[in-house]
Amino acid sequence: MLQTNNYSLVLLIQLSLLAFDLFVNSFSELLRAAPVIQLVLFIIQDIAVLFNVIIILLMMFNTYVFQVGLLSLLLERFRALLVLSAVYLTLSICLHCWIMNLRWMESNRFVWTDGLQVLFVFQRIAAVLYYYLYKRSTEYLGDPRLYEECPWLRDAFARARL
C-alpha cells in the first residue's frame, strides 16, 4: 500500500521538476546572453524529463496491478504519457542541440529557419501536452485501487482474461 507521506513527497518532486521544465521552456530564450548558461539549463531540463519518466515508471512498478501482471491495465491508462514523454524528450534534445549549435559562437544573432521554427513549435506543443498528461498521471497514480485487491481490480482482471 502506498503511504500518503511517500506519495506526497514523490508528487512534490515530480511537480517541482515539471515547474522547472516549464520555466526553462518559457524563459530560456531570455537567458541566451551566455551560451553556457543556456547549455546547462538545457542539460538539466533533459535530465529532469528523464528523471520524471523514471519516477513515474517506478511508481507504476510499485502498483499492485503491475505486480499481479495486469500490465495492459496500466498501459491502457498511461500509454499516452509514456509515448508523449519519449516524443517530448526526443524533440527537446533535438531542439536543444540545434539551437546550441547555431548560437554557440554568437548567442545574440538571428538563427531562425523554417525547420527550426517548426521543431520549436512542435517541441513546445509537446511540452504542454506532456505537462498535462504527466500531472494527470501522477494524480491518477494516487488511486488506492491500484495498490490493493478490490472488486474493481477483480473486474478488470476478469475482463483481461476474456
Binding site: L2, T4, Y7, S8, L11, L15, K135, T138, E139, Y140, G142, D143, P144, Y147
Partner: peptide, 15 residues
Amino acid sequence: TWTTRDVSVRVHRGF
C-alpha cells in the same frame, strides 16, 4: 484518514 486520493484531489484543486 488522509489517503493518496485526498492528496491527489488537493493538488488538483490547488492547480
